[in-house]
Nucleic acid binder design. Structure first.
Lengths: 358, 358
DNA sequence: TTGTAAGCGTTATCAA
DNA sequence: TTGATAACGCTTACAA
């Protein structure tokens, strides 16, 4: 179906049909009705890209994700799409499936990485997207867009390696800080940390924030209480053994999965979480509220991240921003979700009774 | 950047540049090199859709999902995209976000549903996709494509309401059957069921399969042992109370989340799962291996579902199938994941010892 | 109120 | 070996 065929069916010219479809005035009601009827019957839809070629603009935003199957990606993408739709932009999604293809072995392998990234970027360019949003799988400094990239770009859940592109990430420093403050407010002074991999930006920033909280409360930071894991459940379990030999009352696990590993160990040993020892996690995945006791953790507001990124991109596009302006880094706060895994050491039994009684 | 500009920069004609880019013969090595160099420098990418208009084919498959944020959707979409990429098809994803917008209130509300579906379909048609894959959020009979839909369509994780379109779903009957057989093989005879909503196809088919297993083993099916929930954790908890008054040794929960709710109740009462009572779930979500004891459950092979759908779609497209052929329903089996939540009643303590010792 | 014609970025045909 | 030229589906001046 094309405009031409519709025109023939209606015995009018192509431009008349086009005008009607685009709501132009100066068309007799009779022809309008006739044409609209035929359009309805035939189910004709104008070719979006022929329109784009002619009008020289597409209103398409390209989204390129490192891996759609990570827990963080789909919510971010969903939020971006929602925002784009609201502003009458279409989206095109490219899933590089980096983890699916290579697990963890790609992000230090420039060659592997580029062998997927470059064709993906080319594809976006070929589709003539107006802007590109890059959704990382975890926070690190990423050189995803070349400096001479011809359209606006923005990096989400990672930090642009080039100052020409803005980045939207979670506020991990604040996240670590909030957790530190919370644990301290609950009376904990000796706090172990099960961190992620040592060179990971999430790890570094969460730890820095945590240290800041200690500092503000005049508590010495003891590096011996930090164990570095690999974000997997097993490393929480492994860290638990050695960490428990220290004289600690609480543990800050840098993700929920390692917290589950930590739970595993304590469960085996019959140590009660939220009672004998306190635990907080990070991420607020579904497991956090399913394990027992419920895990206090820091929720990552993925939808807000996606929304923020989309809003900025659309603003750049609609306001004809200089493509690639400032390398601003926008940090979205996390949200502490309190469950039952942290004991309040400052409360006496009496306090608890009187409070529950009130 | 356009072909024209490249041509001017190289002092050759447009067609020569086009020929070179498309690997046509009959071009002198000298001009080829010159043009290729300029193309490289300028980062020129031909306009994919201008090509499409001219060539009258796009090799694009549209994917329309009910909600990208459901646990089942992203893996299915990932598999579809992977398969399309392999066969040199591009994909366009449209996320209707039905649950995000309306939770559970849309799929019995034709009007709400169509207010999102119709524009989405139109958009796909407008993009001139060659085929459309519809990814449902849960299995039911869906009238998503109109009977006179002009391009091949296929429904995934749901059953096409029109016989013109094929469907790829999980084999829930077999899934329920396998679980029944497994529990019986472990010596269970009185088995409770925490089902999903009563009118849900997953519920109906899983229950039918379960009943078949009982029948084959000559065990009477007692309808009083079935409780209908709403797939949420709380309904597992609620069902637990009344169900435990019956004389049962095992419970088949129709998803992992309700199994977690069931765990909740038993945990409160100090009843030991995998010991005093056995439980199986369905879905194999991350929580299944995180709760204690690990939940035996049926894994839904989402990637296989997606792959199968994509393969069929591509076959239809490449072989110029009559759009909308058979309303075939392809069922992909689930995979029983054995963990620790089911006790073997047929084993004596002696058996267990001797086996672990061998 | 309607129609003609040019042009968007490609590819395909055919002549030079 | 190269280059005009038409055509793809559409929009938009502008002419009728």
């Amino acid at each position: 179906m094309t405009l031409k065929e519709i025109a023939q069916l209606c015995d009018v010219s192509i431009s008349t049909v086009s005008n009607i479809l685009n709501g132009k005035p100066n068309v007799s009601e009779k022809t309008r009705q006739k044409v609209l009827e035929v359009v309805r019957q035939t189910g004709f839809q104008p070719n979006y890209f022929a329109q784009g070629i002619r009008k020289q603009k597409n209103r398409i935003i390209g989204i390129i994700v490192e891996d759609l199957n990570l827990f963080s990606t789909a919510p971010i993408v969903g939020a971006i799409m929602a925002c784009c739709e609201e502003h009458d932009y279409r989206t095109v999604l490219i899933d590089m499936r980096l983890y699916g293809k290579w697990q963890d072995t790609w992000y230090n392998d420039e060659q592997k990485y580029n062998s997927v990234l470059q064709p993906s970027l080319k594809e976006l360019l070929s589709i003539k997207v107006d802007g590109a949003v890059y959704v990382a799988g975890h926070c690190r400094i990423i050189k995803c867009f070349p400096d001479d990239f011809r359209i606006p770009g923005i990096v989400v859940y990672g930090i642009s390696g080039s100052p020409k592109f803005a980045s939207v990430v979670i506020d991990d420093t604040r996240g670590g800080y909030d957790i530190g403050k919370y644990l301290i407010s609950m009376g904990h002074r000796k706090i172990g940390v099960i961190a992620g991999t040592a060179d990971n930006l999430h790890t570094i920033k969460r730890l820095a924030g945590f240290q800041k909280a200690l500092y503000e409360e005049q508590i010495l930071f003891n590096p011996d209480l930090v164990r570095y894991g690999d974000w997997m459940r097993s490393s929480g379990y492994i860290a638990a053994e050695s960490l428990l030999k220290e004289d600690i009352t609480a543990v800050f696990c840098m993700n929920d999965l390692m917290a589950v590993g930590f739970y595993d160990y304590l469960y085996e040993k019959g140590i009660r979480i939220g009672e004998d020892i306190s635990v907080v996690g990070y991420d607020n995945k579904e497991i956090a509220e399913c394990i027992k006791p419920g895990l206090t953790t820091n929720e990552i507001q993925l939808d807000r991240i996606g929304q923020e990124a989309a809003k900025r991109m659309i603003k750049m596009l609609d306001e004809d921003y200089e493509p690639n302006g400032s390398g601003e880094i926008i940090e979205i706060p996390c949200k502490l979700i309190i469950r039952e895994s942290v004991k309040n050491l400052d409360r006496t039994a009496y306090d608890e009774n009187s409070e529950s009684g009130s």
